[in-house]
């Protein structure tokens, strides 16, 4: 490869990459989630036994990851809509991305205790 031709992108490219990756992750979870919910048609026990897996500490960490993916995809998706439909959208796309990242950090901090609290209590006692 000739030197200096590798496109490393900037905010626009990396947010596009993150949007794809989070979108695929969410879609695969959605398949699993519809299947586990379908167990309510089998029996209350089958459903509750499977949902118990969602309450384990390891899966709680994965749920936090799911929340991270959904929040980024949702906020960045609104940014994409703004870029497409707002006349000044392209001019402020970087500022909007940093707003998305800032909001994402605040919401992730807020979600930490509700999503991970029970896992921390289970692992470290009390």
């Amino acid at each position: 490869m000739p030197a200096g031709t590798l496109y490393r992108g900037r905010e626009g490219m990396w947010s596009w990459v993150a949007h794809r990756v989070t979108g695929v992750l969410i879609f695969f979870f959605l398949f699993v989630h519809v299947l586990d919910t379908a167990l309510v048609r089998v029996s209350p026990e089958a459903y509750d036994d499977t949902i118990a897996v969602y309450k384990t500490p390891l899966v709680a960490v994965m749920e936090y990851g799911l929340v991270a993916a959904v929040l980024f995809h949702a906020l960045n998706g609104l940014r994409v809509v703004a870029v497409d439909f707002w006349a000044s959208g392209t001019r402020y796309q970087k500022q909007m991305l940093w707003t998305v990242v800032g909001l994402w950090l605040v919401l992730m901090a807020g979600a930490a205790y509700p999503v991970l609290g029970h896992a921390v209590r289970e692992v470290f006692g009390s």
């Binding site: 919910t37 309510v40 209350p44 459903y47 509750d48 949902i51 969602y54 309450k55 709680a60 749920e63 929340v67 959904v70 929040l71 949702a74 998706g77 609104l78 979600a111 509700p114 999503v115 609290g117 029970h118």
Partner: peptide, 26 residues
């Protein structure tokens, strides 16, 4: 954005988070 974030709020945050989810809750 509205439906999914509302869903996450109800299932994972409010009222004890994921711990309260059960057949009876559904």
């Amino acid at each position: 954005v509205v439906l999914v974030l509302g869903h996450l709020l109800i299932q994972l945050v409010l009222d004890g988070g994921v711990s309260k989810v059960s057949f009876a809750f559904v």
